[in-house]
Design a binder for these strands. Structure first.
Length: 428
RNA sequence: GGCGAGAUCGCAUAGUGGUCUAGUGCAGCCGCCUUGAAAGCGGCCAGGUGUAACAGCCUCCAGGGUUCGAAUCCCUGUCUCGCCGCCA
Protein backbone atom coordinates (compact mmCIF):
# COMPACT_ATOMS: atom_id res chain seq x y z
CA UNK A 1 0.00 0.00 0.00
CA UNK A 2 1.20 3.46 -0.80
CA UNK A 3 0.37 6.74 0.91
CA UNK A 4 -3.09 7.62 -0.50
CA UNK A 5 -2.19 11.30 -0.38
CA UNK A 6 0.20 10.69 -3.27
CA UNK A 7 -2.88 10.33 -5.46
CA UNK A 8 -3.53 14.01 -4.90
CA UNK A 9 0.02 15.34 -4.55
CA UNK A 10 1.90 13.36 -7.18
CA UNK A 11 -0.35 11.51 -9.61
CA UNK A 12 2.15 12.03 -12.44
CA UNK A 13 4.94 10.41 -10.48
CA UNK A 14 2.72 7.40 -9.83
CA UNK A 15 1.91 7.13 -13.51
CA UNK A 16 5.59 7.29 -14.44
CA UNK A 17 6.26 4.45 -12.02
CA UNK A 18 3.48 2.38 -13.53
CA UNK A 19 4.88 2.94 -17.01
CA UNK A 20 8.40 2.04 -15.86
CA UNK A 21 7.04 -1.24 -14.50
CA UNK A 22 5.16 -1.89 -17.71
CA UNK A 23 1.86 -1.62 -15.85
CA UNK A 24 -1.17 0.39 -16.80
CA UNK A 25 -1.15 4.06 -15.72
CA UNK A 26 -4.94 4.03 -16.02
CA UNK A 27 -5.07 2.44 -12.61
CA UNK A 28 -3.97 5.77 -11.16
CA UNK A 29 -6.92 7.62 -12.73
CA UNK A 30 -9.27 4.94 -11.46
CA UNK A 31 -7.79 5.30 -8.01
CA UNK A 32 -8.15 9.07 -8.01
CA UNK A 33 -11.79 8.71 -8.93
CA UNK A 34 -12.38 6.00 -6.34
CA UNK A 35 -10.66 8.15 -3.73
CA UNK A 36 -12.96 11.08 -4.45
CA UNK A 37 -16.04 8.85 -4.31
CA UNK A 38 -14.88 7.38 -1.08
CA UNK A 39 -14.24 10.75 0.56
CA UNK A 40 -17.59 12.12 -0.51
CA UNK A 41 -19.43 9.04 0.78
CA UNK A 42 -17.62 9.19 4.09
CA UNK A 43 -18.40 12.89 4.52
CA UNK A 44 -22.10 12.23 3.90
CA UNK A 45 -22.14 9.43 6.42
CA UNK A 46 -20.27 11.42 9.05
CA UNK A 47 -22.61 14.38 8.81
CA UNK A 48 -25.67 12.19 9.21
CA UNK A 49 -24.04 10.38 12.09
CA UNK A 50 -23.36 13.65 13.89
CA UNK A 51 -26.98 14.61 13.42
CA UNK A 52 -28.13 11.29 14.76
CA UNK A 53 -25.91 11.58 17.79
CA UNK A 54 -27.32 15.00 18.65
CA UNK A 55 -30.84 13.69 18.23
CA UNK A 56 -30.01 10.78 20.50
CA UNK A 57 -29.06 13.19 23.27
CA UNK A 58 -32.35 14.99 22.83
CA UNK A 59 -34.27 11.74 23.04
CA UNK A 60 -32.49 10.85 26.26
CA UNK A 61 -33.44 14.17 27.82
CA UNK A 62 -36.93 14.37 26.40
CA UNK A 63 -40.06 14.45 28.50
CA UNK A 64 -42.84 11.94 28.02
CA UNK A 65 -44.73 14.52 25.95
CA UNK A 66 -41.96 15.31 23.47
CA UNK A 67 -40.41 11.83 23.26
CA UNK A 68 -42.77 10.16 20.74
CA UNK A 69 -42.24 12.88 18.17
CA UNK A 70 -38.46 12.80 18.58
CA UNK A 71 -38.43 9.03 18.31
CA UNK A 72 -40.31 9.16 15.03
CA UNK A 73 -37.75 11.59 13.69
CA UNK A 74 -34.91 9.42 14.98
CA UNK A 75 -36.32 6.36 13.26
CA UNK A 76 -36.35 7.93 9.82
CA UNK A 77 -32.91 9.40 10.37
CA UNK A 78 -31.62 5.97 11.36
CA UNK A 79 -32.74 4.67 7.99
CA UNK A 80 -30.75 7.38 6.21
CA UNK A 81 -27.70 6.70 8.34
CA UNK A 82 -27.88 3.02 7.51
CA UNK A 83 -27.93 3.74 3.80
CA UNK A 84 -25.11 6.26 4.00
CA UNK A 85 -23.03 3.79 5.97
CA UNK A 86 -23.57 1.08 3.39
CA UNK A 87 -22.65 3.55 0.66
CA UNK A 88 -19.42 4.59 2.31
CA UNK A 89 -18.58 0.95 2.96
CA UNK A 90 -18.94 0.09 -0.70
CA UNK A 91 -16.88 3.10 -1.79
CA UNK A 92 -14.19 2.32 0.75
CA UNK A 93 -14.01 -1.34 -0.25
CA UNK A 94 -13.73 -0.42 -3.91
CA UNK A 95 -10.91 2.00 -3.14
CA UNK A 96 -9.02 -0.47 -0.98
CA UNK A 97 -9.39 -3.19 -3.56
CA UNK A 98 -7.80 -0.98 -6.22
CA UNK A 99 -5.19 0.25 -3.78
CA UNK A 100 -4.04 -3.30 -3.04
CA UNK A 101 -3.39 -3.81 -6.74
CA UNK A 102 -1.07 -0.85 -6.98
CA UNK A 103 2.62 -1.79 -6.74
CA UNK A 104 5.11 0.24 -4.75
CA UNK A 105 6.26 3.23 -6.85
CA UNK A 106 9.76 2.52 -8.10
CA UNK A 107 12.58 4.97 -7.50
CA UNK A 108 13.02 7.22 -10.56
CA UNK A 109 16.54 5.97 -11.30
CA UNK A 110 15.62 2.27 -11.37
CA UNK A 111 16.42 0.81 -14.82
CA UNK A 112 13.36 0.60 -17.08
CA UNK A 113 12.26 -2.59 -18.73
CA UNK A 114 11.84 -6.23 -17.80
CA UNK A 115 13.71 -9.34 -16.74
CA UNK A 116 16.64 -8.82 -19.10
CA UNK A 117 17.03 -5.08 -18.63
CA UNK A 118 18.99 -5.17 -15.38
CA UNK A 119 22.14 -3.09 -15.07
CA UNK A 120 25.31 -4.78 -13.90
CA UNK A 121 26.58 -2.55 -11.14
CA UNK A 122 29.69 -4.42 -10.03
CA UNK A 123 31.67 -7.57 -10.82
CA UNK A 124 33.72 -9.30 -8.14
CA UNK A 125 36.27 -12.08 -8.53
CA UNK A 126 37.32 -13.93 -11.65
CA UNK A 127 35.77 -17.16 -12.90
CA UNK A 128 38.21 -20.06 -12.99
CA UNK A 129 39.60 -20.99 -16.39
CA UNK A 130 38.83 -24.71 -16.47
CA UNK A 131 40.21 -25.08 -19.99
CA UNK A 132 43.57 -23.87 -18.74
CA UNK A 133 43.34 -26.37 -15.90
CA UNK A 134 42.71 -29.03 -18.47
CA UNK A 135 39.23 -30.34 -17.64
CA UNK A 136 35.57 -29.70 -18.28
CA UNK A 137 33.65 -28.67 -15.15
CA UNK A 138 30.89 -30.99 -13.93
CA UNK A 139 27.60 -29.51 -12.95
CA UNK A 140 26.45 -29.37 -9.33
CA UNK A 141 24.19 -32.43 -9.56
CA UNK A 142 26.91 -34.65 -10.95
CA UNK A 143 29.28 -33.44 -8.24
CA UNK A 144 26.63 -33.77 -5.55
CA UNK A 145 25.95 -37.34 -6.56
CA UNK A 146 29.65 -38.16 -6.83
CA UNK A 147 30.32 -37.13 -3.26
CA UNK A 148 27.06 -38.66 -2.05
CA UNK A 149 25.66 -35.30 -0.99
CA UNK A 150 22.56 -34.87 -3.16
CA UNK A 151 19.90 -37.52 -3.81
CA UNK A 152 17.49 -36.23 -6.38
CA UNK A 153 15.86 -39.54 -7.27
CA UNK A 154 14.75 -40.27 -3.75
CA UNK A 155 13.62 -36.71 -3.18
CA UNK A 156 11.36 -37.15 -6.18
CA UNK A 157 10.23 -40.57 -4.98
CA UNK A 158 9.18 -39.12 -1.62
CA UNK A 159 7.65 -35.81 -2.68
CA UNK A 160 7.61 -35.39 -6.44
CA UNK A 161 9.50 -33.23 -8.90
CA UNK A 162 11.68 -30.37 -7.64
CA UNK A 163 12.29 -32.12 -4.32
CA UNK A 164 15.67 -33.40 -3.18
CA UNK A 165 17.42 -34.98 -0.26
CA UNK A 166 20.68 -33.65 1.12
CA UNK A 167 22.63 -36.44 2.74
CA UNK A 168 26.02 -36.95 4.33
CA UNK A 169 28.47 -34.26 3.17
CA UNK A 170 25.62 -32.39 1.40
CA UNK A 171 23.67 -32.16 4.63
CA UNK A 172 26.78 -31.18 6.57
CA UNK A 173 27.57 -28.49 4.01
CA UNK A 174 24.14 -26.92 4.42
CA UNK A 175 24.38 -27.04 8.21
CA UNK A 176 27.84 -25.48 8.07
CA UNK A 177 26.59 -22.72 5.78
CA UNK A 178 23.72 -22.11 8.16
CA UNK A 179 25.94 -21.79 11.18
CA UNK A 180 28.42 -19.61 9.33
CA UNK A 181 25.64 -17.33 8.07
CA UNK A 182 24.10 -17.04 11.52
CA UNK A 183 27.43 -16.21 13.11
CA UNK A 184 28.06 -13.48 10.53
CA UNK A 185 24.59 -12.04 11.08
CA UNK A 186 25.16 -11.93 14.82
CA UNK A 187 28.54 -10.22 14.27
CA UNK A 188 26.75 -7.58 12.21
CA UNK A 189 24.31 -6.96 15.03
CA UNK A 190 21.21 -8.66 13.64
CA UNK A 191 18.91 -10.41 16.09
CA UNK A 192 18.51 -14.06 15.10
CA UNK A 193 14.88 -15.16 14.82
CA UNK A 194 13.35 -18.59 14.30
CA UNK A 195 9.92 -17.86 12.89
CA UNK A 196 6.89 -19.91 11.76
CA UNK A 197 6.78 -21.03 8.15
CA UNK A 198 2.99 -21.24 8.28
CA UNK A 199 1.20 -17.89 8.41
CA UNK A 200 -2.22 -16.27 8.33
CA UNK A 201 -3.62 -14.53 5.24
CA UNK A 202 -2.98 -11.07 6.70
CA UNK A 203 0.74 -11.75 6.86
CA UNK A 204 0.83 -12.92 3.26
CA UNK A 205 -1.40 -10.11 2.00
CA UNK A 206 0.52 -7.50 4.00
CA UNK A 207 3.87 -8.44 2.54
CA UNK A 208 2.50 -8.33 -1.00
CA UNK A 209 2.72 -12.02 -1.87
CA UNK A 210 -0.95 -12.49 -2.72
CA UNK A 211 -0.78 -10.14 -5.70
CA UNK A 212 1.06 -11.12 -8.83
CA UNK A 213 2.99 -13.80 -6.91
CA UNK A 214 -0.11 -15.57 -5.53
CA UNK A 215 0.16 -18.50 -7.91
CA UNK A 216 3.54 -19.33 -6.41
CA UNK A 217 2.26 -19.71 -2.89
CA UNK A 218 1.14 -22.91 -1.16
CA UNK A 219 -2.23 -22.55 0.57
CA UNK A 220 -3.83 -24.86 3.13
CA UNK A 221 -7.59 -24.41 2.77
CA UNK A 222 -8.47 -26.58 5.76
CA UNK A 223 -6.69 -24.12 8.03
CA UNK A 224 -6.75 -20.93 5.95
CA UNK A 225 -2.99 -20.68 6.26
CA UNK A 226 -0.12 -20.23 3.83
CA UNK A 227 3.33 -21.76 3.63
CA UNK A 228 5.84 -18.93 3.36
CA UNK A 229 8.19 -18.61 0.41
CA UNK A 230 10.60 -16.68 2.63
CA UNK A 231 10.92 -15.83 6.31
CA UNK A 232 10.52 -12.19 5.22
CA UNK A 233 6.78 -12.76 5.60
CA UNK A 234 6.98 -13.69 9.26
CA UNK A 235 9.63 -11.08 10.03
CA UNK A 236 7.47 -8.33 8.51
CA UNK A 237 4.32 -9.56 10.22
CA UNK A 238 6.24 -9.83 13.50
CA UNK A 239 5.45 -6.18 14.27
CA UNK A 240 2.03 -6.13 12.57
CA UNK A 241 -0.37 -3.64 14.18
CA UNK A 242 2.37 -2.16 16.35
CA UNK A 243 3.69 1.32 16.89
CA UNK A 244 7.45 1.06 17.23
CA UNK A 245 9.61 3.39 19.27
CA UNK A 246 11.49 5.52 16.73
CA UNK A 247 14.47 5.69 19.11
CA UNK A 248 14.88 1.92 18.76
CA UNK A 249 15.12 2.01 14.96
CA UNK A 250 16.63 0.52 12.98
CA UNK A 251 15.50 -2.96 14.05
CA UNK A 252 17.69 -5.51 12.32
CA UNK A 253 16.65 -9.15 12.25
CA UNK A 254 17.94 -12.38 10.82
CA UNK A 255 15.33 -15.05 10.07
CA UNK A 256 15.93 -18.72 9.42
CA UNK A 257 13.17 -20.88 8.02
CA UNK A 258 12.20 -23.37 5.38
CA UNK A 259 10.81 -21.73 2.23
CA UNK A 260 8.12 -23.21 -0.01
CA UNK A 261 7.46 -22.17 -3.58
CA UNK A 262 5.07 -23.70 -6.07
CA UNK A 263 7.16 -22.51 -9.01
CA UNK A 264 4.04 -22.41 -11.12
CA UNK A 265 4.80 -21.15 -14.59
CA UNK A 266 8.39 -22.29 -14.50
CA UNK A 267 7.74 -25.76 -15.92
CA UNK A 268 10.69 -26.95 -17.89
CA UNK A 269 12.90 -24.19 -16.51
CA UNK A 270 15.97 -25.16 -14.47
CA UNK A 271 14.68 -28.67 -14.02
CA UNK A 272 18.07 -30.22 -13.34
CA UNK A 273 19.37 -30.44 -9.81
CA UNK A 274 18.55 -28.15 -6.91
CA UNK A 275 18.61 -24.73 -8.57
CA UNK A 276 14.83 -24.29 -8.61
CA UNK A 277 13.03 -26.37 -5.98
CA UNK A 278 9.72 -26.37 -4.11
CA UNK A 279 11.35 -26.36 -0.70
CA UNK A 280 14.64 -25.05 0.69
CA UNK A 281 16.08 -23.44 3.80
CA UNK A 282 17.20 -19.86 3.91
CA UNK A 283 18.86 -17.35 6.22
CA UNK A 284 17.29 -13.97 5.57
CA UNK A 285 18.03 -10.41 6.74
CA UNK A 286 15.23 -7.98 7.55
CA UNK A 287 15.26 -4.34 8.67
CA UNK A 288 12.73 -1.85 9.95
CA UNK A 289 14.05 1.71 9.68
CA UNK A 290 13.02 5.32 9.09
CA UNK A 291 11.89 5.91 5.54
CA UNK A 292 14.62 8.49 4.96
CA UNK A 293 17.28 5.97 6.05
CA UNK A 294 16.07 3.18 3.78
CA UNK A 295 18.38 3.88 0.84
CA UNK A 296 21.45 3.73 3.06
CA UNK A 297 20.10 0.64 4.81
CA UNK A 298 19.59 -1.03 1.44
CA UNK A 299 23.27 -0.49 0.67
CA UNK A 300 24.12 -1.95 4.04
CA UNK A 301 22.16 -5.15 3.34
CA UNK A 302 23.72 -5.39 -0.11
CA UNK A 303 27.11 -4.94 1.56
CA UNK A 304 26.44 -7.88 3.86
CA UNK A 305 25.47 -10.05 0.91
CA UNK A 306 28.60 -9.12 -1.01
CA UNK A 307 30.75 -9.71 2.04
CA UNK A 308 29.21 -13.15 2.57
CA UNK A 309 29.48 -14.32 -1.05
CA UNK A 310 33.02 -13.01 -1.40
CA UNK A 311 34.13 -14.75 1.79
CA UNK A 312 33.09 -18.07 0.22
CA UNK A 313 35.20 -17.33 -2.83
CA UNK A 314 32.37 -17.17 -5.37
CA UNK A 315 32.84 -14.84 -8.37
CA UNK A 316 29.70 -12.71 -8.65
CA UNK A 317 27.98 -9.66 -10.07
CA UNK A 318 25.63 -7.14 -8.51
CA UNK A 319 22.57 -6.29 -10.59
CA UNK A 320 20.25 -3.30 -10.32
CA UNK A 321 17.00 -5.05 -11.24
CA UNK A 322 14.75 -3.34 -13.81
CA UNK A 323 11.39 -1.90 -12.81
CA UNK A 324 9.36 -4.54 -14.64
CA UNK A 325 10.98 -7.34 -12.65
CA UNK A 326 10.64 -5.90 -9.15
CA UNK A 327 7.58 -7.55 -7.64
CA UNK A 328 4.75 -5.71 -5.95
CA UNK A 329 6.49 -4.52 -2.82
CA UNK A 330 9.91 -3.29 -3.92
CA UNK A 331 10.85 0.26 -4.87
CA UNK A 332 14.31 -1.04 -5.79
CA UNK A 333 15.96 -4.41 -5.86
CA UNK A 334 19.56 -5.58 -6.14
CA UNK A 335 20.36 -9.17 -6.99
CA UNK A 336 23.71 -10.88 -6.63
CA UNK A 337 24.40 -13.41 -9.35
CA UNK A 338 27.11 -16.01 -8.78
CA UNK A 339 29.18 -17.71 -11.44
CA UNK A 340 28.06 -21.19 -12.51
CA UNK A 341 30.92 -22.85 -14.44
CA UNK A 342 28.78 -25.62 -15.97
CA UNK A 343 26.47 -23.00 -17.50
CA UNK A 344 29.16 -20.43 -18.18
CA UNK A 345 26.96 -17.70 -16.78
CA UNK A 346 26.00 -15.84 -13.64
CA UNK A 347 22.83 -17.02 -11.83
CA UNK A 348 20.84 -15.51 -8.99
CA UNK A 349 21.95 -16.33 -5.44
CA UNK A 350 20.69 -13.39 -3.38
CA UNK A 351 18.18 -10.59 -3.67
CA UNK A 352 17.64 -7.51 -1.54
CA UNK A 353 14.63 -5.19 -1.76
CA UNK A 354 13.79 -1.80 -0.33
CA UNK A 355 10.03 -1.95 0.24
CA UNK A 356 9.85 1.59 1.70
CA UNK A 357 6.40 2.04 3.31
CA UNK A 358 4.63 -0.53 1.16
CA UNK A 359 4.58 -3.43 3.60
CA UNK A 360 4.45 -1.39 6.79
CA UNK A 361 1.28 0.39 5.62
CA UNK A 362 -0.44 -2.84 4.75
CA UNK A 363 0.62 -4.40 8.02
CA UNK A 364 -0.20 -1.27 10.01
CA UNK A 365 3.29 -0.80 11.42
CA UNK A 366 4.35 2.70 12.38
CA UNK A 367 6.92 4.39 14.59
CA UNK A 368 6.48 7.07 17.22
CA UNK A 369 9.16 9.72 17.32
CA UNK A 370 9.57 13.30 18.51
CA UNK A 371 7.30 14.56 15.70
CA UNK A 372 4.55 12.04 16.26
CA UNK A 373 3.58 8.76 14.67
CA UNK A 374 4.79 8.13 11.14
CA UNK A 375 5.53 5.42 8.61
CA UNK A 376 8.53 3.08 8.70
CA UNK A 377 10.37 1.37 5.87
CA UNK A 378 11.04 -2.36 5.62
CA UNK A 379 13.88 -4.00 3.74
CA UNK A 380 14.84 -7.58 3.18
CA UNK A 381 17.85 -9.38 1.78
CA UNK A 382 18.99 -12.95 1.31
CA UNK A 383 21.98 -13.87 3.37
CA UNK A 384 22.14 -17.52 2.32
CA UNK A 385 19.65 -19.54 0.29
CA UNK A 386 21.08 -23.00 0.87
CA UNK A 387 20.65 -24.91 -2.40
CA UNK A 388 21.91 -22.07 -4.55
CA UNK A 389 24.93 -21.51 -2.34
CA UNK A 390 25.65 -25.25 -2.34
CA UNK A 391 25.57 -25.16 -6.16
CA UNK A 392 28.05 -22.28 -6.17
CA UNK A 393 30.42 -24.01 -3.79
CA UNK A 394 30.31 -27.40 -5.50
CA UNK A 395 30.81 -26.04 -8.99
CA UNK A 396 33.39 -23.34 -8.31
CA UNK A 397 35.50 -25.45 -5.96
CA UNK A 398 35.51 -28.71 -7.91
CA UNK A 399 38.66 -30.62 -8.78
CA UNK A 400 39.38 -32.83 -11.81
CA UNK A 401 38.69 -35.98 -9.79
CA UNK A 402 35.24 -34.75 -8.77
CA UNK A 403 36.24 -33.81 -5.25
CA UNK A 404 35.29 -30.39 -3.86
CA UNK A 405 37.45 -28.09 -1.73
CA UNK A 406 35.57 -26.81 1.31
CA UNK A 407 35.82 -23.00 1.60
CA UNK A 408 38.13 -22.14 4.49
CA UNK A 409 35.52 -20.18 6.40
CA UNK A 410 33.24 -23.24 6.53
CA UNK A 411 35.82 -25.71 7.77
CA UNK A 412 35.37 -24.83 11.46
CA UNK A 413 31.72 -25.81 11.06
CA UNK A 414 32.56 -29.08 9.31
CA UNK A 415 34.92 -30.61 11.80
CA UNK A 416 37.92 -29.27 9.92
CA UNK A 417 37.23 -31.25 6.74
CA UNK A 418 39.06 -29.60 3.83
CA UNK A 419 37.79 -31.62 0.91
CA UNK A 420 34.66 -33.57 0.03
CA UNK A 421 35.79 -36.75 -1.71
CA UNK A 422 33.94 -38.79 -4.35
CA UNK A 423 32.48 -41.99 -2.98
CA UNK A 424 33.94 -45.30 -4.06
CA UNK A 425 31.83 -46.96 -6.72
CA UNK A 426 30.74 -49.59 -4.21
CA UNK A 427 29.35 -47.02 -1.79
CA UNK A 428 27.34 -45.15 -4.36
C1' G B 1 -11.02 -31.85 20.14
C1' G B 2 -14.52 -30.81 24.77
C1' C B 3 -15.97 -27.44 28.77
C1' G B 4 -15.39 -22.79 31.33
C1' A B 5 -13.49 -17.58 32.07
C1' G B 6 -11.72 -13.36 29.74
C1' A B 7 -9.96 -9.08 25.96
C1' U B 8 -11.64 -1.22 28.03
C1' C B 9 -6.94 5.11 25.86
C1' G B 10 1.55 2.69 28.07
C1' C B 11 0.32 -0.43 32.86
C1' A B 12 -3.65 -1.45 36.49
C1' U B 13 -8.67 -0.89 36.93
C1' A B 14 -14.29 1.31 36.92
C1' G B 15 -18.18 1.11 33.83
C1' U B 16 -25.17 -4.18 32.56
C1' G B 17 -29.00 0.32 27.08
C1' G B 18 -29.02 7.36 26.65
C1' U B 19 -25.05 13.46 29.99
C1' C B 20 -19.46 7.67 28.07
C1' U B 21 -17.52 13.79 24.91
C1' A B 22 -15.12 6.42 28.59
C1' G B 23 -14.00 7.70 35.21
C1' U B 24 -9.89 6.68 38.64
C1' G B 25 -4.84 5.24 40.12
C1' C B 26 0.21 4.49 38.45
C1' A B 27 3.94 5.64 34.94
C1' G B 28 5.51 9.59 31.48
C1' C B 29 5.90 14.93 29.74
C1' C B 30 5.55 20.42 30.79
C1' G B 31 5.08 24.36 34.33
C1' C B 32 4.95 26.47 39.43
C1' C B 33 7.56 25.96 44.01
C1' U B 34 13.02 24.61 45.22
C1' U B 35 20.21 25.95 45.45
C1' G B 36 19.04 20.94 43.27
C1' A B 37 15.82 16.87 43.96
C1' A B 38 11.54 14.77 46.26
C1' A B 39 6.81 16.02 47.91
C1' G B 40 2.85 19.27 46.82
C1' C B 41 -0.03 22.09 43.21
C1' G B 42 -1.66 23.04 37.99
C1' G B 43 -1.72 21.39 32.98
C1' C B 44 -0.75 17.68 29.19
C1' C B 45 -0.79 12.50 28.35
C1' A B 46 -3.90 6.56 22.37
C1' G B 47 -4.56 6.38 17.27
C1' G B 48 -7.11 7.25 12.63
C1' U B 49 -9.63 10.45 9.31
C1' G B 50 -10.24 15.39 8.26
C1' U B 51 -8.97 20.92 8.24
C1' A B 52 -5.20 26.58 6.41
C1' A B 53 -6.25 25.96 11.59
C1' C B 54 -10.49 24.59 14.28
C1' A B 55 -14.70 21.63 14.25
C1' G B 56 -16.68 17.08 13.04
C1' C B 57 -16.51 11.81 12.59
C1' C B 58 -14.40 6.73 13.63
C1' U B 59 -11.94 3.19 17.03
C1' C B 60 -13.71 0.06 24.25
C1' C B 61 -10.16 -7.39 20.28
C1' A B 62 -12.44 -8.01 14.98
C1' G B 63 -16.84 -8.66 11.91
C1' G B 64 -22.07 -9.00 11.74
C1' G B 65 -26.94 -8.26 14.31
C1' U B 66 -30.95 -6.16 17.75
C1' U B 67 -32.34 -0.87 18.91
C1' C B 68 -34.35 5.73 17.69
C1' G B 69 -29.65 4.92 20.51
C1' A B 70 -24.53 -0.36 22.15
C1' A B 71 -18.22 -0.44 25.86
C1' U B 72 -22.92 -2.52 27.83
C1' C B 73 -27.64 -7.20 24.75
C1' C B 74 -27.27 -11.38 20.71
C1' C B 75 -24.29 -14.27 16.89
C1' U B 76 -19.60 -15.52 14.53
C1' G B 77 -14.37 -15.21 14.47
C1' U B 78 -9.38 -14.22 16.57
C1' C B 79 -6.40 -14.33 20.69
C1' U B 80 -5.34 -15.14 26.10
C1' C B 81 -6.05 -17.97 30.65
C1' G B 82 -7.86 -22.53 33.34
C1' C B 83 -9.45 -27.73 33.42
C1' C B 84 -10.05 -32.42 30.54
C1' G B 85 -8.60 -35.41 26.18
C1' C B 86 -4.84 -36.32 22.39
C1' C B 87 0.23 -35.63 21.03
C1' A B 88 6.42 -34.63 19.37
Amino acid sequence: MIDPRLLRTDPDGLKRSQEARGESPELIDQLIEADEDRRAAIATFENLRAEQKQLGREVAQATDQTRPELLAKARSLAEEVKQAEAGSGVAEARFTELMMLLPNPVFPDVPRGGEDDFVVVETHGTPRDFAAEGFTPRDHLELGELIGGIDMERGTKISGSRFYVLRGPGALLELALTQYAVSKAVQWGLTPMLVPALVKPEAMEGTGFLGQAAQDVYYLPADDQYLVGTSEVALAAYHMNEILDADHLPLRYMGYSPCFRREAGSYGKDTRGIFRVHWFDKVEMFTYCRVEDSVAEHQRLLGHEKDFIASLGIPFQVLDVAAGDLGLSAARKYDCYGWVPSQQKYREITSTSNCTQFQSRRLNIRARGADGVGPVATLNGTLCAMPRMIIMILENNQQPDGSVIVPEVLRPYMGGVERLEPLEAAQA
